[in-house]
């Protein structure tokens, strides 16, 4: 199976023109297989929730200072997530419905949704850099050590108990990393591709790049696009899994309960303090770090 479709340019050069659209089905089926595989693994083979290390035990003094509702996502962050999700769904539908036979004039809707996504991502980068805890979403040394411990224990090898998560579980952080890379790929290539169609933003210039560069740009855009099909499927799947529902609810309401905080998060790595008011998140009571 060809991953890329090639063509001959008017100058006799072999150029890539876009991905093979069968990759859409590869991504969809791959995503479905992952979901089914994960669901079966969790149902039949996964061990009960791993005991956390002694270090992760929360003292009564700290626990006493945790408010009933612990702010997790600010209103700005939640609105960004909602707008980005709507734009992403619109982009996927406008990109791939025509490929499966649903015909409509999709290009205008597609670049409008792409513009919304681009603006929302720019907002997110600025918001996260200056108003949120920028590093909280990036994997750190403790994440790597805990991941190593969890893998070893899952394989039946001796290893110390892993700690609790910081604000975001490692899986969240890795997903964010992959989505960020795929998102940057579609946005950067998409902005350039808007130079090829009629929009109010640019004067059309199909000669901005050579055929080869344009071709690879379309390929990269397509690869990231079909990748997003599986990524969005996985995201929705995890969002509705029972053990993750409290995270999903926090993306809607902005907070998690005191019990959820103490059960899943390490107050040392995610101290809930007055600092939160600076982030714009709902104000919560102070917890000693």
């Amino acid at each position: 199976m060809n991953l890329i479709e090639w063509a001959q340019s008017p100058w006799g050069e072999q150029i890539p023109i876009h991905i093979a659209w069968s990759l859409l089905w590869v991504s969809t089926i791959g995503g479905l297989l992952f979901l089914v595989g994960h669901a079966v693994y969790v149902r039949y083979w996964a061990k009960p929730a791993t005991a956390h290390s002694e270090q992760a035990a929360v003292s009564a003094e700290i626990a006493a200072h945790v408010p009933e509702r612990v702010a997790r996502h600010s209103l700005g962050a939640r609105l960004f997530h909602l707008i980005m999700a709507i734009a992403m769904i619109a982009l996927l539908l406008t990109a791939f419905l025509p490929k499966v036979g649903v015909r409509f004039a999709w290009v205008t809707y597609h670049w409008i949704a792409g513009t919304v996504l681009t603006v929302s991502i720019i907002y997110h980068i600025i918001h996260a850099s200056f108003w949120l805890d920028f590093w909280s979403i990036w994997p750190d040394k403790e994440d790597r050590e805990d991941a190593s411990r969890r893998i070893k224990r899952a394989l039946g090898q001796p290893a110390p108990a892993p700690g609790k998560f910081a604000k975001y579980p490692l899986e969240n952080k890795l997903y964010h990393l992959v989505v960020m890379l795929a998102g940057l790929a579609v946005v950067l290539t998409g902005v350039f591709m808007m130079k090829r169609v009629e929009t109010p933003f640019f004067t059309r210039n199909p000669y901005l790049f050579g055929d080869m560069t344009w071709g690879w740009m379309y390929v990269l855009h397509g690869l990231a696009g079909v990748g997003f099909v599986a990524l969005v499927m996985a995201h929705i799947y995890f969002a509705i899994r029972p053990e993750k529902l409290f995270i999903t609810k926090s993306m809607i309401f902005g907070w998690i309960t005191r019990e959820q905080y103490l059960e899943h998060h390490d107050p040392r790595r995610w101290p809930v303090s007055e600092q939160d008011s600076v982030t714009g998140q709902p104000k919560s009571k102070t917890v000693p770090a």
Binding site: A7, S9, P10, I17, H18, R196, P206, W214
Partner: peptide, 10 residues
């Protein structure tokens, strides 16, 4: 030539 109508991107 690999134009839009022929499945291309220009």
């Amino acid at each position: 030539w690999p134009c839009y109508r022929a499945g291309g991107n220009i």
